[in-house]
Design a binder for these strands. Structure first.
Lengths: 185, 185
DNA sequence: TACACAATTTACCTATTGGTACACTAGTAG
DNA sequence: CTACTAGTGTACCAATAGGTAAATTGTGTA
């Protein structure tokens, strides 16, 4: 009998992909069980809070990833312009050039927004603030930096929506080019 | 016994609001029954295809509204710059300054995207094309017009996501100002 | 006045939902 | 060798899901 012991850390990325594909309501425990290869027993062992805790864990991991790979580099870069450039490339890679949905953005439009309002808000607020900080240190004034950061974060989300709606990844790539050009101008 | 006869045309806007609030999967027939004040019998009388037909009807009505109020004016305007300006105002009003979600955008991020792929695609393609046409006739070259139109449509969606995520309508208003300025530059 | 038909109510159906209870297995520490 | 524990599998649960069937109501028209 295969006992193949699992770990929480291995499950969360799978959960993330499931929520991305099906949304919160659309991701049933049956689907989750199939895709993770875990029975309900194991699932509720790792996530006693059920689906809600699973989604929270996914959001926490996403936040940790962005903190480590996007926000902190932007905040702490000695070379802010290079950090901005690096952000653009990381983002393009992370979202598979627009073929991958932003789970936080999707949750924001869904009715689960209320349940995870804080996570969702922080995700975008942190992004905007860290980017604004890098722009500030690259020589812009505070107002321009804040405005440009807000526009960029917003545009990335819009490009993800449009790319997916049109089924055309090039929409996202064009948007990222525009954003990078404008950030470095 | 109150018989209060209903009409399909009266129901669709209510359905639209329900789908906006709860998403496709999240909008149960129970909720729909409550909010419309109609039993399942009436609902299936008007929409024999069930939930899917209800959503399709909503998307069709949205498309018709945009065709009449946004796309056609852009395409047929004798004064294209004024039409672009009018579009910006209509859009701001339609989305309640970012407090109201774009159902088509939300569906695009959801897993129901596949089911309504054509509607969703057309909505954005038509918007982009009609806007590009107005820009073209306002004196821009074809490439600039197409690019700027794509960027604008994309930015509107992004602004809706971000405004809702942050619970801050001013994000949307700033975005619309930027877009209008750039379109009329 | 009676017919036809649109609209509605009510009752019912099966599958699935998220969640619980609990017995069980396999390592591991003493 | 034994006791403990993290992880697993199975069976079960009430509630709800979307959907169906048919009897009933009212209303405009001939």
């Amino acid at each position: 009998m295969a006992k193949t012991v699992a770990e929480r850390a291995d499950i969360v990325p799978v959960l993330a992909e499931i929520f991305r594909e099906h949304g919160y309501e659309g991701a049933s425990l049956a689907t989750i069980g199939d895709r993770t290869g875990l029975g309900k027993g194991s699932l509720y062992h790792f996530f006693p809070g059920g689906k809600e805790e699973m989604a929270a864990a996914v959001l926490a991991e996403i936040d940790a990833w962005f903190e480590a790979n996007i926000y902190r580099p932007l905040r702490e870069a000695t070379e802010p312009r290079a950090a901005v450039e690096a952000m653009c490339h990381s983002v393009t890679e992370y979202f598979h050039s627009g073929r991958r949905v932003c789970l936080v953005g999707a949750f924001a439009l869904d009715n689960v927004r209320d349940r995870f309002a804080n996570c969702i808000k922080d995700y975008f607020a942190d992004w905007q603030e860290s980017l604004a900080q890098a722009l500030l240190r690259s020589g812009r004034n505070a107002d321009d930096a804040a405005d440009l950061a807000e526009e960029s974060v917003s545009s990335i989300q819009g490009a993800l929506v449009l790319a997916r709606a049109l089924g055309d990844a090039s929409v996202f790539e064009r948007a990222m080019d525009r954003i990078e050009r404008r950030l470095l101008a």
